[in-house]
């Protein structure tokens, strides 16, 4: 039940809900737990509620770390 990949906010309604897109499939989400969400933000939605915003800078930093670890090669 903790499954949740990031999706992109594609629309916002005045009642605090909106649509989140996952590669062409959209889901209705409630944004009440995540004030200040904007169209274009990447968010984690759980049980119909957006609970976190994706930090792109941190994501890029992790990807860089992956590349560094790959370069180190095998342990033995």
């Amino acid at each position: 039940m903790c499954l949740a990949v990031p999706g992109k906010v594609v629309s916002l309604e005045s009642n605090g809900t909106g649509k989140v897109d996952y590669l062409g499939t959209t889901v209705l989400a409630n944004f009440s737990l995540l004030p200040g969400v904007k169209v274009g933000d990447w968010v984690i939605v759980h049980a119909g509620f957006a609970i976190s915003r994706l930090d792109q800078k941190e994501a890029r930093r992790t990807l860089k770390l992956f590349k560094e670890l790959e370069k180190l090669g095998p342990a033995d």
Binding site: P6, L63, F66, L69, E70, L72, G73, P74, A75
Partner: peptide
């Protein structure tokens, strides 16, 4: 896809090797 880097075999291998080290 937004998650493909986190599932790729080469990334996984890199981290596994780091753990093994």
């Amino acid at each position: 896809e937004p998650f493909s880097d986190w599932r790729s075999g080469s990334t996984v291998k890199g981290i596994l090797e780091a753990i093994r080290r």
